[in-house]
Computed example of a mutant assay.
Amino acid sequence: MAGAEGSAPYKAHEAAAEAFRSVHDRSPAGVWSAPGRVNLIGEHTDYNDGFVLPFALPHRLAAAASPRDDGMLSVATLGSDGRIQQADPLRITDLKPRSIDGWAAYPAGVAWVLRDQGITGGADVVLAGDVPTGAGLSSSHALECAVSLALLGLAGHELDQPESPTRQEIARWVQRVENDFVGAPTGLLDQTASLCCTKANVLFLDVRSGESEQVPFDTAAFGLRILVIDSRTKHSHADGGYGERRRGTERAADLLGIKALRDVPFDALDATLRRLPDELVPLVRHVVTENQRVLDVVELLHAGRLPEIGPFLDASHVSMRDDYRISTPELDTAVDSARSAGALGARMTGGGFGGSAIALVAADDVPKVEAAVTAAYEREGWRPPRTFVAVPSAGAGRDA
């Protein structure tokens, strides 16, 4: 689904509108878009009622759309090769979970969830964007958020308007798309980040309460950058490993007699682990320590000590590699080579089993770190990683 790259900034909303005109020979009624995200820290804590700290990427997925009067959903997508792929039209009243394969399941799932909210009108939707797919940067959630805003907008429920659903409500609907329609047992992190993040900030979210805070994150003021390293190894939340980890943490909470692992006090961790079967110990240790790392990083950011967060990124990666066991050789190599080349801290980001890593790097050292990671991949015989500097950007909204 990624759009074409080049020297000029890619504008997803313009690409989607142009593709819509190509498919339907008319202009769309509107264009809505949503960003991918990077999670600075706080991995696999969201479905444990914990804390997360994501920010939105400048990379976006746009949905150009117009209403239909026949109750059908027509979806098409503009690929990175410039070709448009169209799915067979779907009757919204006939949609059922797990009944559609491939990328079309995501917009179909949105229509299915919104049907329960009384929104049953048909639509023509054409998608375009440059959020890398399979990179752990939440391309599927960006798609679902953009389509949600498009279908809501066509029904007269524009975002942030009186009587319209809130961003938090839409995030929970998108979670239903993933969990119930697509069959991926994800939490609330990705869609909430896509909908609620703001420019120049990280979003400190308490998943249990829904309370959030925009925390300033100006790396440039400290001469630093966040470098994203796409390992180019695909991952999918619908695959078994993610679900196994989630079921393990839920089983641990049940054995401990608590609602979620969020309720395990950090200072009581060792005693708590002694009450659990050996196979659940590392999962619980990761979640509890990761929640504490989020709180520690937020405290440092509030104190204006951003350069000091690097060791917490490092510790997060070790925890995901050794305790949660969701890293890969490619991600470990990206993290290790970035650190060896001078990064202040690095970790894999996202659900794991592939995807991307991030590194906190001095601005002047970005080329050196990129070269070191690329050289390490070359030595292993892997294709070169994709790297870019990530800047906290605006969340979802209407573009035209």
Rank of each mutant, 00 (worst) to 15 (best):
69 D>E: 15
52 V>Y: 01
54 P>H: 01
375 A>K: 03
119 I>V: 15
55 F>Q: 06
398 R>S: 10
127 L>C: 08
258 I>R: 06
239 D>M: 12
68 R>C: 14
17 A>G: 12
182 V>K: 03
221 A>R: 10
196 C>G: 09
65 A>S: 11
299 E>V: 07
322 D>S: 10
141 H>R: 13
157 H>D: 05
326 I>M: 10
231 S>A: 11
392 P>A: 04
14 E>M: 04
43 E>T: 11
139 S>I: 15
17 A>N: 13
84 I>R: 00
399 D>L: 05
105 A>Q: 06
308 E>K: 07
227 L>W: 00
253 A>T: 09
299 E>R: 10
95 L>I: 01
214 Q>P: 03
39 N>H: 03
234 K>A: 15
341 A>Y: 00
222 F>R: 03
66 S>L: 07
228 V>Q: 05
107 P>Y: 04
149 L>H: 02
344 L>V: 10
45 T>I: 12
98 R>P: 06
33 S>A: 10
109 G>V: 09
165 P>E: 09
333 T>R: 09
351 G>Y: 06
59 H>F: 07
95 L>D: 03
187 G>D: 10
129 G>Q: 09
239 D>R: 09
185 P>A: 12
318 V>W: 00
318 V>S: 11
260 A>H: 01
6 G>A: 08
332 D>Y: 04
63 A>V: 08
277 P>D: 13
390 A>L: 01
85 Q>K: 07
122 G>M: 12
354 G>P: 01
232 R>W: 03
92 I>R: 02
306 L>W: 00
264 V>D: 08
352 G>M: 09
261 L>R: 06
178 E>Q: 06
385 P>F: 00
28 P>E: 02
139 S>C: 04
291 N>P: 11
288 V>N: 02
272 T>L: 08
143 L>E: 10
264 V>A: 04
383 R>H: 06
341 A>P: 11
303 A>M: 03
85 Q>Y: 02
192 T>F: 01
188 L>V: 15
64 A>D: 09
73 L>K: 04
66 S>Y: 01
150 A>S: 13
347 R>Q: 11
119 I>K: 02
18 E>P: 10
284 V>P: 07
377 Y>Q: 04
2 A>T: 11
320 M>E: 10
117 Q>F: 06
388 F>M: 12
313 L>C: 12
141 H>V: 14
400 A>T: 09
126 V>F: 01
67 P>S: 14
377 Y>A: 15
204 F>S: 15
59 H>A: 14
311 P>S: 04
74 S>V: 10
91 R>Q: 07
43 E>P: 00
226 I>E: 04
189 L>N: 10
176 R>F: 00
58 P>N: 07
344 L>W: 00
26 R>C: 15
93 T>V: 11
133 T>C: 08
225 R>L: 11
176 R>A: 12
323 D>L: 09
158 E>K: 08
294 V>I: 06
97 P>D: 02
142 A>M: 08
